[in-house]
């Protein structure tokens, strides 16, 4: 039987790639297998050279820039997957129960705005609650992060630009404050405010939270084998 790389030699290649700044385990795995296959093919073809000599030979043949290109391609691939998931979650959002949910929220918020004095202030303060929910989701993401190694796919699936933190931390409260100051005095303004809250706040934040939770689930579904041996 032809010689194959030992577990120690495989670990050595992983460590070497770490030093070359290819730190994501899911990216390393594919490169390690490719390099190991090239080395084993040389042994199978009759080479009597050592692992170290053959490793640097195959690594030199490929060149540093190509491994970086590979990392970039993997990043783009993960991003495409994230966007595809996002589009699919977003489209699923427009099924009738969710449209009904959004419409009912709109009616409730509108009634609330008309019936309760200073209701606008309550809505504005509800941003803190949303901020809390978003932070809890991030806590879940951090808690579920694989313990030992970094995974590009995990970061890609769950990060999604941190758009919800950005929204609750800055854009929505400011936007809401400007909007409410200008329009809350009129019935049409209340209508607009209710629409703004139900569409922008409820829909966008629910979407981004769902996106992150689904991202974690998808990661664990796709990479169970890698998580065992990382």
């Amino acid at each position: 039987m032809d010689r194959v790389l030992s577990a120690d030699e495989i670990r050595w290649i992983h460590d070497f790639l770490e030093l070359k700044d290819i730190t994501y385990y899911d990216v390393q795995v594919e490169i390690v297998d490719h390099l190991a296959s090239l080395i084993e093919a040389k042994w199978a073809a009759g080479s009597r050279q050592s692992f170290e000599v053959l490793f640097f030979e195959v690594f030199k043949d490929f060149g540093d820039h190509q491994w970086r290109q590979l990392l970039g391609a993997k990043q783009k691939g993960v991003w495409r997957q994230v966007v595809r998931n996002g589009v699919s979650i977003f489209l699923n959002f427009f099924t009738w129960p969710l449209v009904a949910y959004t419409f009912l929220s709109f009616l409730l918020i509108y009634t609330f705005l008309l019936a309760v004095p200073n209701a606008v202030n309550y809505l504005q303060e509800s941003m803190y609650l949303w901020g809390f929910i978003v932070l809890v989701t991030w806590g879940y993401v951090i808690y579920r992060r694989p313990a030992k190694r970094a995974f590009l796919a995990y970061d890609g699936f769950v990060t999604f630009l941190g758009i919800d933190l950005y929204l609750v931390g800055w854009i929505l409260p400011d936007f809401f404050a400007i909007f409410s100051e200008r329009f809350s005095a009129t019935p049409n303004g209340m209508l607009g405010l209710a629409a703004f809250y139900s569409l922008l706040v409820l829909v966008i934040l629910t979407f981004s939270i769902l996106m992150r939770i689904k991202g974690v689930q998808q990661f664990y579904k796709t990479y169970p084998q890698l998580l065992i041996t990382q």
Partner: peptide, 30 residues
């Protein structure tokens, strides 16, 4: 490799390929 893997990752990202890992000769194979 510089041509193959970007093409594979693009196809995977577009949902045309599914992946699975298997332990082969002391390493994970995708």
């Amino acid at each position: 490799e510089g041509a193959l893997y970007p093409a594979l990752h693009k196809l995977e990202g577009d949902g045309y390929l599914t992946v699975e890992y298997q332990l082969v000769n002391n390493r994970q194979r995708k």
